[in-house]
């Protein structure tokens, strides 16, 4: 986990949440969440639907507001003012279940927009960066196409490239393969595995347990807005401690 300790910043976690709580009215969506993610660490978040896992990662880049607790990302304390929120969002990439590519822009333009408008890169720099990253997700030949002309799997890989064009310190994945046809899941997972192998800090909300086994340093299981259990994948799958975890794994892995 901590292979590269070559600067002071690596000793503090890349992402940390302490005592985070969130309500929707009277409903408690997140209940005293404490977690810490080291630089380069890969976390898989799983749990039944409605358990708060998506809400949790959406709090990290403040797409969701939370009422209590602190979140630090890359040394920045995520306040409620727009300055720190913007700073955090520039450091953290996010990939969505529904891809959310911009339909009126080509693949290349999708990747260039934020680096130009948010980071202030000029057109040539942004294009250079976009082409490099499209190459990395193996989709450079589609650069001039529009999202609607791509398959779901291709769109999701573009979405990953688009997020990477911001040179983020960490990536959040919100069920990235849930909206895909089964035959396209692998190409997206392969892209994520490659990214993990390059040392990206990642938090993935996913039900792809094969992916969890292969790349996760830790699997975190959530239920009813709280973290129930966390363990390295080998231990998590072979020896789940809590009843709810066992039940969930039984359902998702089909062994009862």
């Amino acid at each position: 986990m901590n292979q590269t300790i070559n600067s002071a910043t690596t000793t503090e976690p890349m992402i940390s949440l302490s005592g985070v709580e969130k309500w929707y009215g009277a409903f408690k969506a997140l209940d005293n969440i404490n977690m810490s993610v080291a630089k380069g660490e890969k976390i898989v978040l799983c749990g039944p639907s409605g358990s708060g896992k998506s809400t949790l990662i959406r709090c990290i880049n403040h797409l969701e507001a939370y009422q209590k607790g602190d979140i630090h990302v890359g040394g920045i304390m995520l306040g409620h003012g727009s300055k720190t929120i913007d700073a955090v969002r520039r450091e953290v990439g996010m990939v969505f279940q529904q891809f959310n590519l911009f339909p009126h822009l080509t693949v290349l333009q999708n990747c260039m927009l934020a680096p130009m408008r948010s980071l202030g890169l000029d057109k040539a720099q942004a294009e250079d960066r976009a082409r490099t990253l499209l190459e990395r997700v193996k989709i450079s030949e589609q650069a001039e196409k529009y999202p609607a002309q791509l398959s779901g799997g291709q769109q999701q890989r573009v979405a990953i490239a688009r997020a990477l064009c911001m040179r983020p310190k960490a990536m959040l994945f919100d069920e990235p393969t849930s909206a895909l046809d089964p035959e396209m899941v692998k190409e997206v997972l392969d892209t994520m595995i490659a990214l993990a192998e390059e040392g990206m800090t990642m938090i993935c909300v996913t039900h792809e347990m094969g992916f969890a086994r292969q790349v996760a340093d830790r699997v975190i299981f959530m239920a009813s807005g709280a973290i129930v259990e966390e363990a390295p994948p080998a231990e998590f799958f072979s020896n789940p401690k809590h009843e709810r975890t066992r039940k969930f794994l039984g359902e998702i892995l089909g062994r009862h």
Partner: peptide, 18 residues
Amino acid sequence: ISKGQMEAGLALGLHKAQ
């Protein structure tokens, strides 16, 4: 327009007006 478009833009560090 789906809420996801706004969220994707915000997550990329763009301001609401942008």
